[in-house]
Simulated assay, not measured.
Amino acid sequence: MDAIVIACANRNIVNYLNNESASRKAKISRHDLQAILCDKVRTDDKGNYQWRVKKPWDTFTQDVYVALENIIVSFKQNLRVINKTSNYYWHYENGKKVLVKQVKGDSWAIRKTMHKDTVFGEVNLRKVKSVSLNEALKNPQFIVEKDLKRQLLSLLQQNFDIKKIKKIL
């Protein structure tokens, strides 16, 4: 969508949109660009109208809709999170300093930050569903409403019978 908008925008449109964005604060407008780039569209029967930027061609919205519907979105992970290291270290051999590759040990290295919000972390989504009171009394820790849950747990700690709890609630 962004590429389509950028491809269809020219210098005048960008200039007009920048001026309109700034005009909200400064109360000025580029009427010359507005007359060239926009159409006056009525919004109601009272005579109110809006200025809308002209389409590049008549079937622009339909063509863009078809183009966007045919796009297949895919996400490829091109960076391994963990892999073997290839560590080198400086070592002296026969009095000379030499760069040597590590051969001893099985070293692994994390190649991606793990502290950012990524798809690699655990996602805990709470699912809310309506159940009968009998089902809710069987598993009171899954009740979402905090006040009801607190009151129900306190009654269960006081060894109230389920029939008595139903009468109270």
Rank of each mutant, 00 (worst) to 15 (best):
L137G: 00
L99I: 03
W51M: 10
T118V: 03
F75V: 10
L125W: 00
H31K: 14
I168F: 09
L125V: 11
L68A: 15
K127C: 04
L152P: 00
G105D: 09
D117L: 08
I36N: 03
F60T: 07
I162T: 04
K96G: 08
K96Q: 12
K163M: 07
K149Q: 09
A67L: 10
L137A: 02
A3I: 11
Y49D: 09
I168A: 02
L99N: 11
L155Y: 05
I28R: 06
V41D: 06
V103H: 11
W90Q: 13
A136F: 02
T59D: 13
N87Q: 11
A67K: 14
D106C: 04
L156I: 15
Y88C: 07
W51Q: 10
L169I: 14
F142K: 06
E135V: 05
Q50L: 04
R52Y: 08
W51C: 02
A35N: 14
Q77F: 08
A7M: 09
K84E: 13
D32V: 03
C8E: 02
I110M: 05
S107R: 15
N10K: 10
I82C: 04
A26F: 10
S154M: 02
F142I: 08
K116Y: 03
D2Q: 10
I72R: 14
F60Y: 11
R111C: 08
N159P: 00
R80Q: 14
D147Y: 12
L156W: 02
R80D: 13
Q141V: 08
D39S: 07
F120G: 04
V53K: 03
Q50E: 11
D32Y: 01
C38T: 07
L79C: 06
D39R: 09
N139I: 05
R80M: 15
K127A: 08
W90T: 07
R30A: 13
W90V: 07
H115Q: 09
I72S: 13
V119L: 11
E20P: 02
T85Q: 10
V73H: 15
N94W: 00
E122N: 10
T61W: 03
L133R: 04
L68C: 14
Y89G: 12
S132Q: 06
K149R: 12
N18C: 14
L155Q: 05
D32E: 12
L152I: 14
K84Y: 07
L169C: 01
L155K: 00
R30V: 02
V123I: 02
T59Y: 13
S154C: 10
A67N: 15
K116C: 05
Q50G: 07
Q77G: 01
F75I: 11
N83K: 07
L37E: 12
I82W: 11
K84M: 01
K167D: 08
I143Y: 03
I82T: 11
N19F: 00
M1Q: 10
V73M: 12
K97W: 02
V144W: 04
G47W: 06
A136P: 01
V98D: 03
L99W: 03
V53T: 13
Q141A: 15
Q50I: 00
Q102I: 00
V73W: 15
K27P: 08
K97D: 00
E135R: 02
A67V: 09
M1S: 14
I71K: 09
Y92D: 09
